[in-house]
Computed example of a mutant assay.
Amino acid sequence: MVEERSFISKTLNGFNAGVLVFITLLCLYPVWYTLVVSLSSKAAVAAGEVFFWPSGFTLSSYKLIVEDMQFFNSFLISLERVVLGSSITFFIVLLMAYPLAKNAKEFGLRNIIMWLLIFCMLFNGGLVPWFITMKSLGMVNNIWGLVLGGGLPVFNVILVMNFFRNLPKELEESAIVDGAGPWRILFHIFMPLSKPVMATILVFTIVYHWNEFFQALVLMTKTENYPLQSYLRQVTIITDPSNMDAESAMRLATTSNQTLNAAKIFVTMLPLLIVYPFFQRYFVKGITLGSVKG
């Protein structure tokens, strides 16, 4: 009887493992397929011969992307935007979520501010008023327009606020008794206990600033000020071969819109694929368990 149960248990575990492996492969295949298409020749992609491995291996798509120095300039602009935007947004969200996590008796303006945030999250003034406002603040053709244009994501504020409200109230009360002020409580107690939600909003912010392209199209009048996503969106394969050298013309002949677009997609998502594993462990780790002893 015991052996039969053991056999059934092993069979079910094996089945579950197989299902999980299958789901994992389904999730990874689009990324792999994008890479395979970007490394395949124009003829192979057009003929539908590309499935699991590159056909007619070529690096023409990547060479077309990186041969222009503007690509590297746009990459640095995107990197600067991610660093500045993530840092500023993280700090603002933290400072706003902490007082809003208190009740109306502790912070009298809490309900008013919350209603204003919800209203701003649901409605906005429109693109033209937003542009006029940004222009009046001198944020056209300026990296600060991209950094501060969406500097306060209300959803992230609500996410952090709710996490703070679920922290044991006894922690803050004990700190107050020991003479700690709001700043010390926030940075020395709440932040260390909130690594999961901090990592979450940091990933959300990094992904937003890295992938967002429309604001640059509105605020930037010069291509050299475009971040990577906006610049790659402007890259087109419709190029006059007469203005190209022989090597570039040869690469152009072996590249299609599909292969070039696949290369763009893979280049732009590669940094996020590298960064995400460093934050992933915080999504599943409980920090506050056992923080208060009865």
Score class of each variant (00 low, 15 high):
P227V: 12
H188M: 10
I176C: 08
T133Y: 09
W53L: 06
D240L: 04
L273S: 11
Q258G: 03
L76T: 13
Y208G: 15
L95S: 05
F119V: 09
I113T: 01
V83K: 05
C27E: 02
F107Y: 04
L260R: 03
K105P: 01
E4G: 11
D245Y: 02
L260M: 10
K105D: 11
G48R: 04
N111K: 01
S136F: 03
G179R: 08
G125M: 09
G126K: 08
T268V: 15
I23P: 01
Y231M: 07
V128K: 00
F51G: 00
E3R: 15
I237T: 05
N141S: 07
Q70A: 13
I65M: 13
P182L: 04
V83D: 03
G125Y: 06
L35M: 09
I118C: 01
F107G: 01
V2C: 02
H209V: 08
T58Q: 11
A175Y: 11
V157W: 03
P153I: 07
T236P: 03
L167C: 08
L252E: 00
N162I: 05
V160R: 08
G151K: 05
L219Y: 15
F214E: 11
P30L: 02
M269V: 15
F266W: 12
K169Q: 13
T133R: 10
V31H: 03
W183Q: 03
K102H: 05
N261Q: 14
P30E: 01
A262S: 15
R81E: 12
W53N: 01
V37P: 02
A180H: 09
F72I: 12
K169G: 09
I238S: 10
L272Y: 12
F283D: 07
